[in-house]
Design a protein around this nucleic acid. Structure first.
Lengths: 356, 356
DNA sequence: GTGAAAGCGCTAACAA
DNA sequence: TTGTTAGCGCTTTCAC
């Protein structure tokens, strides 16, 4: 390291100001100077020091993002989409994981703030415990929550319309003949878990069917597997299971398979997210697809629009998801029209039937 | 933003130097001063500016990491492990994805270098095309490659011993009675694809069995599915398939299932990586587990030991992996001892049998 | 033990 | 158009 703009200026026989102007191209210099400077720069292997520029400009060209865990495919998808959206604005992404721990989350928030990120995107791990640190951060820098959010509505949020999602899932299994449905999801320490359970209960009530006690653990394969075993150990299987995410659904499917239960003949299973593996598990998973790319676009849009200290009310943007019908749910027996629900078996996701 | 150390110093009635000393605690100040400064800092909500500190110290406390794609679960696992290892050293991770594109990779490398990361961890997406940018970066800052590497051996590398891995996989299916084996993997634009194919060919030659022409596409579910269909369309199924990663294996399994082929009765399938889903697919996948945490530890160790400009030879560290036998491969019929290979069906990964 | 001041690399006033 | 210079916030000599 070590060749600075001074070195370039000296080599080109001009002042640092001219070198800076030539390099940035944002101010007029003679073609001659421009030429000499650029050549000197490449010859010396000059690399602009983004740190110095950031200190001078009071802006880093950096957006910080904190998600609970990068192991969860839903979060990696949303990270990818955000990164994709950020390309447009020329910002770099500083990604952190909170490991589902409010303390680590708060620490990450602090280091990102210390690094003077221009904006913050976060999916807070805990509905309550994450609140102080998130609100404090929102006071310093534009901040948008995605997917999960903190209590009190003090900061902007973009996510999925969980009520709509669960209504679609429940209505679908009911249309397939289910009369008893159980919800398998995460414990209620985060907003997603809360909203989805609430949406589920609303949907079952409206459909007039039995809502059995929910099984709440974690958003993981392991918990799905465990919950499946618990179901098998119970007196009678429900007609359908709706899951809080796809990981749970896949684990549950595995447990049911081991228990010799046929899906969807004996029981329907619906997931949530539509991660990559959903179309490749066996049978391919019927699930609610999150509109990840749209969510990411909204997040970035909101981030650019936020002004710290501006007392405008917090925005809340809930995007409607779409049910993707595959083969873990029984075909519709009445009411809803679903083209070719009993049709050919495909696993490549190309011929998924989607409700409209 | 905006409260600086000057503000703190003024509020505490001391000089900025004393404030700095008190805050960092790295130099002596009277208890009285320390107390006044810390109180002023908290009262004003002072946040040290890491950018200014970095400029002054010529070190950012930051490690840059570039992987081909964050959607591939193997890379997310290694990222998590690296992040975990970095906790110890107090460094933050700046994560980027190259999206499997050398041009994007080179750009990421440049912005990371501009941000003056203290070190670089990279899994170069292309064996050849990635080389110039990676070598150039290695000249500026400590750099360690992980998993994939560039041609010519010009930079340190930590990865898995692919020869050992493929030998274990091939020997295992051969021990189960396979006489013809096909390798399904990625095209040879990256080192992993090359090494694994080479390891496969070596292993089949040594085992004295038929090595059919490999099927090379991408490290994705979709390619695995497609390759499976190709296999089904062929004249005769091989006795076994060894895959370049687990994604391929899962996609392939799906295609075989749709084609009505029973695994492992009619054909054995072995994956590579042992990502989370491997234990939960159907049947649970026999695969070679990458020693990810050890790899991450080695990477970080190497990174701390690298000195730019130091002409020591490039290190190459290949860690031996371990075969995890689950249920996509036929039980051993002769030779190798594998405890309980015909035993109970479990899917939770707790009772996986591992070769020793 | 404390304070004044230099300087990290850069850009934008301000002058010329 | 070009050069000189101040200053972003911080830490660390160097005097005292």
């Amino acid at each position: 390291m070590g060749v600075t703009i001074h070195d370039v200026a000296r080599a080109a026989g001009v002042s640092v100001a001219s070198a800076s102007r030539a390099l940035s191209g944002r101010r007029k210099v003679t073609a001659e100077v421009a030429e000499r400077v650029t050549r000197a720069a490449t010859e010396l292997g000059y690399r602009p020091n983004a740190i110095a520029k950031a200190l001078r400009d009071q802006t880093t060209g950096t957006i910080g993002m904190i998600v609970p865990g990068i192991g969860n495919p839903f979060f990696t998808t949303i990270v990818e989409s955000v990164e994709h959206q950020l390309q447009e604005t020329g910002h770099d992404l500083l990604l952190c994981a909170s490991l589902y721990t409010p303390e680590i989350e708060a620490r990450r928030l602090n280091t990102l703030l210390a690094r003077r990120v221009d904006g913050l995107i976060i999916s807070p791990c805990d509905f309550e415990a994450s609140a102080p640190a998130v609100l404090n951060a929102a006071r310093q820098v534009p901040l948008v929550q995605v997917d999960r959010y903190i209590e009190g509505g003090g900061a902007d949020w973009v996510g999925v319309d969980d009520d709509s999602a669960l209504a679609q899932a429940v209505d679908h299994v009911v249309a397939g003949g289910a009369r008893s449905v159980v919800f398998v999801s995460s414990r209620l320490m985060n907003s997603s878990a809360r909203l989805r359970l609430a949406g589920f209960q609303l949907a079952t009530a409206r459909a007039g069917i039995a809502s059995l006690p929910p099984l709440l653990g974690e958003f993981t394969l392991a918990w799905g597997f465990e919950a499946g075993q618990a179901l098998l150990a119970g007196d009678a299987l429900p007609d359908a299971v709706v899951c809080g995410n796809d990981e749970i659904a896949v684990g549950l499917l595995r447990a049911l398979r081991l228990g010799g239960v046929r899906v969807p003949e004996e029981i329907s299973v619906v997931g949530f997210d539509d991660v990559g593996h959903a179309a490749m598990c066996d049978p391919p998973l019927t699930t609610v697809r999150q509109p990840v790319e749209e969510m990411a676009a909204e997040v970035v849009r909101l981030l650019n629009q936020v002004r710290v200290g501006d007392p405008r009310p917090a925005q809340r943007i809930a995007i409607a998801p779409r049910l993707v019908v595959r083969q873990t749910s029984r075909p519709v027996t009445r009411g809803v029209v679903t083209a070719g629900a009993g049709g050919t078996m495909t696993g490549d996701g190309q011929e998924d039937k989607e409700t409209t």
